[in-house]
Computed example of a mutant assay.
Amino acid sequence: MEWRCAGLGWPDGKPVLRWEGGRCSALAYGRDIGFRAVGERRCVGARGNPCPLRAVVPGPATQARCPECARLDRAFSVAADGVPDDPRTYRVYLAWFGAGLVKVGITAEQRGPVRLLEQGAVAFCWLGRGPLMAARRTEELLRAALGVPDRVPYARKRGVRGALPGWAERERELAGLHGRAVALDGWAEALERMPFDAVDHAGVFGLGAHGGPAADGVVRELVDGGAVAGRLVAAAGPDLQLAVADGSVLVVDTRVLVGWALVAAGAGAGVSVPVRAVEPAGGGAEQDGLF
């Protein structure tokens, strides 16, 4: 039976693989998982509408959309300021990925911490809450004043995830930045400052107290007939970390699974898709979304 993948999600703080049509498969650490790609990777459409052409999209692309659907999706994206009159309450946050690797961002309050899980934030804290444009203006103020970015490449996140400082250091770094942030002048008047309360996701991601396991390679493309099988040892953001038969640990970037029809493969199927080396912590130019 073929199911077409719709990506990794974090409902209720737990990883699930989503499928076209709304089905979900829960993922559990320590369990074997395996799948094989079938046919061609197809565009997933935009804003809940299927692609009228069912266009074929490149295997390595991190978004499974053809150019026309990508333009439509971007045109109505809050991240691209396509909906400036969005009436929802937004929150400004600090996301921590590793020592000295912090970003500032915003997310709709109704989503809770889901956006932080989607980004692979090992720890985070809220800074403020209020209307969208007030949150956006304050985000820009904090980015400049604190010297932190609003985007962090996934390659950098993967590069540091295998060796993290302990919780006390994570909390201390976030507390220092939070204190500087809420003391700044120039916040949008409509934005309410929030007290410091750091949240840790290491356990949710299946990481140890100091991160890990370190990855040996990254699956960044599927091919027709190609298989991926192993034991799930951790997950963070869009990444699944699998211990595979040769003893190595591979990251499966599930963004490149989206749009593929997948069938089950046994634990002995191995890995027969292209694998790239994990980039060093300081490398990589790939960016994830604004929020």
Rank of each mutant, 00 (worst) to 15 (best):
L17G: 11
A26Y: 10
L27H: 08
Y29A: 07
R31M: 09
G45D: 02
R47S: 07
R47Y: 06
N49S: 09
L53A: 13
V56F: 05
P67G: 13
C69W: 04
A75L: 14
S77R: 04
A79C: 13
V83H: 05
P84I: 08
P84Q: 05
D86Q: 11
R88Y: 14
T89S: 07
A95D: 05
G100S: 13
G105T: 04
I106S: 01
G112P: 09
L116K: 03
A135M: 06
A135V: 07
L141I: 03
L141Y: 00
R151A: 01
V152P: 00
P153V: 09
A155N: 00
R158M: 09
R161G: 00
G162S: 08
A163K: 09
P165Q: 04
R172N: 04
E173F: 02
G176H: 05
V182F: 08
L184Q: 10
D185I: 03
D185L: 12
E192I: 09
F196N: 05
F196E: 05
D200K: 02
A202I: 11
A209T: 04
H210C: 12
A214V: 15
G217L: 08
V218H: 01
L222H: 04
G226T: 14
A234P: 12
A235V: 02
G237T: 04
P238Q: 13
P238G: 06
D239S: 15
V249W: 11
D253E: 10
T254K: 05
E279H: 11
G283W: 11
F291S: 07
